[in-house]
Structure formats: C-alpha cells, structure tokens
C-alpha cells in the first residue's frame, strides 16, 4: 500500500478522500434510484390507464 502513504498525515488524507468518494457514489446511486423508481411508477400508471 505504498501509494497510500502520505507521511504522518496518511490517515487524515486517506480518510477525507475516502469519505468524499462515499458521498459522491451515494449521490449517484440515490439520484439514479429515484429516477428509475419514478419511471417505473409512470409506466405502471400508463399501463393501468390502458387496460380499462
């Protein structure tokens, strides 16, 4: 793990970059999940309008 060596501040640097990665990924996952849920709901609604 030599590439993750930042001297005496290793834990702080790795910690803050790691946290940033988590927050960015969480943003992507949450936004995409929301859109796909809404798309599914809209399709379901349209389908139910068609049946009667």
């Amino acid at each position: 793990m030599e590439f993750l060596d930042f001297g005496k501040h290793t834990a702080y640097v790795v910690g803050s970059f790691g946290l940033t990665l988590i927050v960015l990924v969480a943003n992507v996952v949450a936004a995409r999940a929301r859109l796909s849920n809404r798309l599914k709901a809209a399709r379901r609604r349209l389908a139910s309008e068609d049946t009667p």
Binding site: F3, F6, G7, H9, T10, Y12, V13, S16, F17
Partner: peptide, 21 residues
C-alpha cells in the same frame, strides 16, 4: 492532487485534503 502536486512547505502531505475540501 495526491501524486503530482508538490507537498506544502508547512503542512506537507496533509495539505492535499484541500483538493476535496
């Protein structure tokens, strides 16, 4: 920010947190 930029004269590698903060 982590590997190419030089370390700071005072904060050494600790200053790299600036790139996310």
């Amino acid at each position: 920010g982590l590997y190419v930029a030089p370390a700071d004269y005072q904060q050494l590698d600790g200053f790299r947190i600036i790139y996310v903060h």
